[in-house]
Design a protein around this nucleic acid. Structure first.
Lengths: 238, 238
DNA sequence: GCAGCTCGGTACGGTATCAGACAAAGGGGT
DNA sequence: ACCCCTTTGTCTGATACCGTACCGAGCTGC
């Protein structure tokens, strides 16, 4: 605790805080490992901690009563959870968990809430992030409705790539199929398409981005809008 | 203006405000007609007014660069726009317009912003609404991904029915097809399915809900989650 | 080196939905 | 009454994706 230098922090929200706001929050931040599968918040339960990832990627997943599920957004060092704290909503109906292992800072929600009430800058910053997140959800919705699987896969890879350091993303097809709400074999064939165009390289349990530029062109209509919105609201994060 | 009695107001957010908050905002509220097609806010533009509908239904639509579009949510007397004011985000990338004609109150965003900063109750209430709205978007996303057209149509009709007074909803198939991001003839056949099961009655330019209970059962997995969340956050609105 | 698991590749038939086109029906204006 | 425009109904062929099943390939442990 205690000694966190803001310039050494990688989480974009923490970086963007004014110095005074940062020092106020920093004394309560605790560094934690975030292993794959770690639950940052459970559906309909009030979270004990807010998390600001430094590395790794978290998934936000909605589930229907009958157990259908779809990913509605992801975040890494660009974001935080839970949005419900910022909106004074208590809980939200989503599963939020680490999909790519990493680490980050946490603060008890009991401590974060009063800080939010006192500090307009903090509130505004996190408010803008919540907007960016909900815009991401909206464009996921659009993509689910109108884009083909391979484009949606490309979009998804790009979004992960934005939030990781190297060009390597390690995930199984099974997992990807859940994220995209499609069959597992559909992921396999969609990956083959991308691989055939030399946009990515893929092998058991992981893939490597080979040509990011071309990947963006392939995803074209599916990628970009919510990234532009994030940029407008909170600047670049990588 | 001046003389708006809170008990006579139908907009649920205005109704839920504590009396002091309501009187503070009420003196700036202006009653306006909201004809079909009226733009409550345009993409990437800062809105001049915030709207609190009393009747009618508004659509929130996301557009991709290449002009694909999909509805991500709707609201009527249960909500307001723009969410961006609440989140200190300036604008948002959506088209928001009246899809069923109605009326409501508006207030200049320049006046609403300072009220939000001063009044914690107002801020909390609208924050909770923003959460409800973004949850609605999330479940739209899920529905787009996993549910069949007729279920999505049923969901959509139910959501409209929640926000209107009678059992009658007047919209063309063309319009519906845009909302659901499907072909126009697909709407026609999906409506036939619902009509065949005697859940609705449909004729040129309008439809009538005949058996709401059965409609909910038909939509089953697609309907209910975000309504429960709204209820938890803001109570019933009809 | 073999057993046993997870993960990935592939195949087959089925179907929901699409793209596009066209015709019939309703409704309003002159 | 008529014309015209909007809205709805229907058809044909194509295709993206599904459900299911099965097998091979790659890791891990002993």
């Amino acid at each position: 605790m205690g000694e966190i230098r803001q310039t050494a922090v990688r989480n974009n929200l923490l970086r963007l805080l004014p110095t005074t706001s940062f020092t106020a929050i920093a004394m309560h931040l605790e560094f934690v490992e975030l292993p794959r599968g770690f639950e940052l918040s459970e559906p309909h339960e009030e979270a004990d901690y807010a998390y600001f990832p430094e590395t790794g990627i978290a998934s936000i997943v909605a589930r229907s009563p009958q157990g259908q599920h779809a990913e509605i957004g992801i975040f890494g060092r660009d974001g935080m959870t839970p949005a419900a704290v910022v909106l004074d909503a208590g809980s939200d109906p989503f599963s939020i968990f680490m999909q790519v292992q990493g680490d980050g800072y946490r603060i008890s929600t009991a401590l974060l809430k009063p800080l939010l009430d006192q500090d307009g800058e903090l509130k505004s910053l996190l408010g803008r992030y919540v907007q960016a997140l909900s815009v991401q959800g909206a464009f996921t919705s659009l993509s689910n409705a109108v884009h083909h699987i391979d484009e949606r896969l490309a979009r998804w890879i790009l979004m992960c790539h934005d939030r990781t350091d190297g060009d390597e993303i390690s995930l199984t097809h099974e997992f990807l199929s859940i994220m995209l709400a499609v069959r597992r074999p559909s992921v396999t064939t969609a990956l083959h398409v991308l691989e055939g165009r030399k946009l990515i390289y893929s092998e058991r349990g992981m893939m490597i981005v080979r040509d990011r530029q071309a990947l963006e062109e392939f995803a074209k209509d599916a990628y970009g809008e919510c990234e532009r919105e994030y940029n407008r609201l909170l600047g670049p994060y990588h």
